[in-house]
Design a protein around this nucleic acid. Structure first.
Length: 267
DNA sequence: AGGATTTGACCCTA
DNA sequence: TAGGGTCAAATCCT
């Protein structure tokens, strides 16, 4: 690795770290400012909108910086395709494509967080499945999803869903959900019709792999009828889904956004 | 017919 | 070199 390359890489990482620190400070500021405002006032709504916009903006910056770090590896991959690919047209298409979307290899994309849940698909975003694999030594296959806005808006967020191995043969199925990459897509603002009513607590999130320190929390949860399994899930507000502030930022959730519910069903 | 899912192959990373 | 993430053709579904 050349000196120039390594210095570019570390500069990007420093910038990402600084932006993430700013986001943490932003949340502190949010908590300080919001309680002092009348929640019904236009001023409070404006302040929340401003916080939201800043969060969205920083998410995009982080995504671009992460792509920048991967540019050289991506160039190598294009070169490999050019010399080993089935034909030159295919390589050309890949090259054109990667100019737009960056590195497709997820291992270079930052791991945002993970949750253990009974309802792995109800996380407020629309996902498109692009693969499924049996992982060695695992009892259940792993499914791969990318944000449904990956084409339209170039959102690079992905997630993997894998059923946990249960000991004791309990009837409850638990899933590990790992999130990668920041969402840069805009939500459409449509409340999912499956959200029938709200209740309190009894969320399906069983365990967070880190302590939940998200401060954009209200305690409402949403009961959701799953079409294919006819199970009634109780899904928390998105902020309870998040394992940490970073993930809250990645999914761009604040208390002012009601959750959108994915229509996905279990694979 | 077009979108979603499945599945085997490809290939990157550790 | 094995494991696992992604691609893309085949297949399914609406």
């Amino acid at each position: 690795m050349g000196i120039l390359e390594s210095s570019t890489h570390s500069s990007s990482q420093v910038a990402i770290n600084e932006i993430e620190r700013q986001r943490a400070l932003m949340i502190d500021l949010h908590d300080l400012v919001l309680p002092k405002l009348d929640p019904c006032s236009g001023q409070a709504k404006l302040v929340q909108q401003l916080f939201q916009d800043i969060f969205n903006s920083s998410s995009k910056v982080i995504s671009f910086l992460e792509l920048g770090d991967n540019s050289e590896k991506q160039a190598n991959r294009i070169e490999y395709k050019r010399t080993h690919g089935k034909n030159n047209m295919e390589s050309h298409v890949l090259e054109e494509e990667t100019k737009e979307v960056g590195n497709k290899r997820r291992k270079n994309v930052k791991h945002i967080g993970s949750v253990v849940t009974e309802a792995p698909h109800f996380d407020g975003y629309q996902w498109k499945k692009y693969g499924q694999k049996w992982i060695s030594k695992a009892k259940h296959s792993r499914s791969y999803y990318r944000c449904a806005s990956s084409k339209g808006q170039g959102c690079l967020a992905t997630k993997t869903v894998q059923q946990k191995e249960t000991n004791g043969g309990g009837t409850v199925r638990l899933f590990n959900v790992d999130y990668y990459g920041q969402h840069v897509c805009k939500k459409d603002g449509i409340i999912h019709p499956y959200v029938a009513k709200t209740a309190r607590h009894s969320a399906p999130i069983v365990n967070h792999n880190q302590s939940s320190i998200s401060t954009f929390v209200n305690n409402d949860v949403h009961r959701i009828q799953d079409e294919s399994y006819e199970n009634l899930f109780t899904v928390p507000d998105m902020s309870e889904y998040l394992i940490d502030i970073e993930m809250a930022g990645a999914l761009e959730i604040t208390s002012m956004n009601l959750p959108l519910i994915s229509e996905d069903i279990w694979a």
